[in-house]
Simulated assay, not measured.
Amino acid sequence: MRISTGQMFQQNTKSILNNQSAANKTLQQLASGKRVNTAGDDPVASIAIDNLSQKNVQVSQYIKNIDYAKNHLSIAESKLGSADSLMTTMRGQFLQGINGSLTAADRQIIADEMKSNLKELLAIANSQDESGNYLFSGFKINSKPFAFDTSGAMVYSGDSGQRTSNVSTQVQIGINAPGDSAFMKAPNAMGDYGVNYLASQQGDFTVDSAKIVSAGSHVPDTYTFNFIPNAPGVDLQVLNSSAAIVATVVNFDANTPVNFNGIEVKLSGIPVSGDSFTMQPLNEVSIFDSLNQAITLLEDPSAANSPQGKSKLAQLLNDIDSGQNQVSIARSNTGTGLKSLESISASHDEEQIVNQSALSLLEDLDYSAAITEYEKQKLALNAVSSVFSKVGSTSLFDFI
């Protein structure tokens, strides 16, 4: 079979180009250190490499989110810890201040110390992060959450929003402690109602609990408890806000709970004729209001050691304990979040190692095999080029 000069040149040129392309591909692999640089190098491996790379990018983002969440939870945990310690100090100061042997001036000094600590507690509750966002304002990160109004009551300007961060597939972790749940919504230690002791009180008694025991028959209202004479003891009349009698207890005994309108009230101590107090619905108490009321009690010389003051004292101590426990719960929740983040972070680190190992197996180049292959390709290219140069320069006239 005869081969034309054109065919010869075409075939040899094609062979040289193919060998050059193979050698260039091997050189590219040697330069990058990767066996698979394009999908054409290994289509099946390329798909797996893309999937693993996407997973690594996702895991890297999760790790960044975890670092962000750790930072915010760590700050919140630290601030709540400081608040908890400050409350312990203020509770001790309050107990010191109600000592009957202290003078009015001594109590005022303790009250002033408590005021200073209360300002510090308020500053902690209004803490900001490194970006100037308020830690305890829920979603309203630009709103200062806590402030006392003109009447001395605490007003919360944040919301109950729980900000979250995506830290794993279908896993979100809260990165803040809403201020209302941490500082404003402590369960009322007395139950479902709050008590207002009156200055006219003469007997030594306290309300231990006031709870709803029958939701179906419960009638929420402000109730007045009047103790009226019935020698040798007293009777009790309970009136609603319309001054209508809703319960009467003849020969009142503090050992027996008072039940009316789905409410059970337990008292301790000995009331006397003429004593009275009111009761209104109250499910939650604010640690700020409790501490503020404690300071007010210390600053009133006539109230501190009065029957009313002693009854109020027992209630305030319970409210302060409940408020401090609520802050401790919020702190515990942030600690639980931090512990979860540590566990998830460790899992992501392991996942990255496994993914990187799989990527290495799929795409990393075996240098010894690649160099050997390149030498073979170079030898073949040189051989083809040499043959082509000799054949291409051959002419019939050389044999005439």
Rank of each mutant, 00 (worst) to 15 (best):
S322W: 00
L297Y: 00
T296R: 13
L317C: 02
S276Y: 14
M279P: 12
D321G: 08
G309R: 05
I287T: 03
A294P: 01
Q308D: 01
L297M: 09
E299Q: 15
T296L: 12
S286T: 05
S311L: 09
G309A: 10
D275V: 13
D319Y: 05
L282I: 03
N283Q: 01
S311P: 11
D319M: 08
L298D: 10
S311G: 15
L317Q: 14
F277W: 11
T278G: 14
D300W: 04
D275P: 13
V285W: 02
T278I: 13
L317T: 09
K310Q: 11
A314I: 10
P281V: 08
L291N: 14
D319Q: 12
L317H: 04
Q308T: 02
D321R: 07
S286R: 01
I295P: 04
T296Y: 01
L282W: 07
F288D: 08
S322A: 08
S286V: 04
S276L: 13
L297G: 01
I295G: 05
F277T: 04
D319V: 02
Q293N: 14
N318P: 00
Q315S: 12
K310P: 00
T278Y: 14
S322E: 00
K312F: 02
E299C: 08
S311E: 11
A304R: 14
I287Q: 05
S306F: 04
L282C: 03
L291Y: 14
P301G: 04
A314M: 09
D275N: 15
D289F: 09
S286D: 09
K310E: 04
F288C: 07
S302P: 01
K310A: 02
L282V: 06
N283G: 00
K312L: 10
L316R: 04
S276H: 15
L282Y: 02
D300N: 12
T278V: 13
Q293H: 08
A304Y: 10
M279L: 15
P307V: 09
A314Y: 10
Q280R: 13
L297R: 05
P301L: 03
E284A: 07
S311Q: 10
D300Q: 08
N292G: 14
P307F: 11
L291V: 15
Q293V: 07
G309C: 07
K312N: 11
N318H: 00
F288E: 10
S306Q: 06
L291Q: 14
L313C: 07
A294M: 09
T296E: 13
Q308Y: 04
L316F: 05
N318M: 05
P307T: 08
D321K: 10
L317D: 09
L297P: 01
E284Q: 11
S276D: 13
S322T: 00
P301E: 09
L317M: 12
S276W: 12
A314G: 10
S306L: 02
S302G: 01
S290K: 06
S322F: 00
S311T: 06
E299S: 15
S286C: 07
S306V: 02
S302W: 00
N283D: 00
S306T: 02
D321E: 07
Q280V: 05
D319G: 01
F288N: 06
S290H: 06
D300L: 03
S306R: 06
S276P: 13
G309S: 10
V285R: 03
L297Q: 09
N292D: 10
M279C: 14
I320S: 05
D300T: 08
A294I: 02
